[in-house]
C-alpha cells in the first residue's frame, strides 16, 4: 500500500512464481550485458581507446602544424590537405570553427589519430559512418582507426562550441 505503512509480516511474504521468473530472466540479461562489454574489448573491432595523453593547446598545435608540413599535398577551401603514410601518427585538431587538416587515407590501413582541441570542447562525428567521439582541450585522445570503406567522409562537430558551431565541418578522404 503505497500510501500506508506495509501490512504486518510484509517481509516474510513469499515472492509470487511469475515475479520470480521475471526477476531471474532480468538478472540473466543484466549480467550478460555487463560481460558482453568486457568480451567485446577482447573480440570486438570497435572499442573506445585506452590511450590518452595530457597536452596543452600550444603543444598540440605545434605538433599538428609540424605534421601538416611533413605530409602536406595541397589545399582545399583554405584548409591544408595531408596524406600520411599508413601506420603513422595522424594529428587532427578542432578549433572554433575548423577541423584541421583534411586527411587522405588508404582503405584497410591503420592510422593512430591524435585528436584534441585548441579552445572549447568539440565533437568528432564521422559521417556517414556515424562514429562519434569527444574532443577536449588539453587532452590528446589517441584513437587507432582502420577505415573499412572508401569515399569522402565529413567530420561534423556535434558538441556546441559557440555561434559558428554549425559551420564546423571537416573532411576525410579514403582511397581504395
Amino acid at each position: 500500500m503505497a500510501l500506508l505503512p506495509p501490512e504486518e509480516g510484509w517481509y516474510y511474504k513469499k515472492v509470487a512464481r511469475d515475479e520470480k521468473m521475471w526477476i531471474a530472466i532480468a538478472l540473466v540479461v543484466c549480467l550478460t550485458l555487463f560481460f558482453w562489454m568486457v568480451v567485446w574489448h577482447v573480440y570486438g573491432r570497435q572499442n573506445p581507446s585506452f590511450t590518452t595523453y595530457r597536452t596543452t593547446p600550444q603543444e598540440f598545435n605545434a605538433l599538428t602544424q609540424a605534421f601538416i608540413e611533413k605530409y602536406k599535398t595541397g589545399e582545399m577551401n583554405g584548409i591544408p590537405v595531408v596524406e600520411p603514410p599508413p601506420n603513422s601518427d595522424v594529428f587532427l585538431l578542432g578549433k572554433m570553427w575548423r577541423w584541421e587538416p583534411v586527411l587522405v587515407l588508404k582503405k584497410g590501413q591503420e592510422y593512430r589519430f591524435h585528436i584534441s582541441s585548441l579552445d572549447l570542447l568539440h565533437g568528432f562525428s564521422l559521417q556517414p559512418v556515424n562514429m562519434n567521439f569527444m574532443v577536449y582541450p588539453g587532452y590528446d585522445y589517441v584513437l587507432t582507426f582502420r577505415p573499412t570503406s572508401a569515399g569522402e567522409f565529413a567530420i561534423v562537430c556535434n558538441e556546441f562550441c559557440g555561434v559558428g558551431h554549425h559551420t564546423m565541418i571537416g573532411k576525410i578522404i579514403v582511397k581504395e
Binding site: Y53, R54, A62, L63, F67, K70, D89
Partner: peptide, 14 residues
C-alpha cells in the same frame, strides 16, 4: 594520472 605525449613522438615531428 594521465601521462604526457611520449618524447619520441614529439621528436619525430618537431
Amino acid at each position: 594520472w594521465l601521462s604526457p605525449i611520449p618524447a619520441e613522438l614529439k621528436q619525430s615531428l618537431l
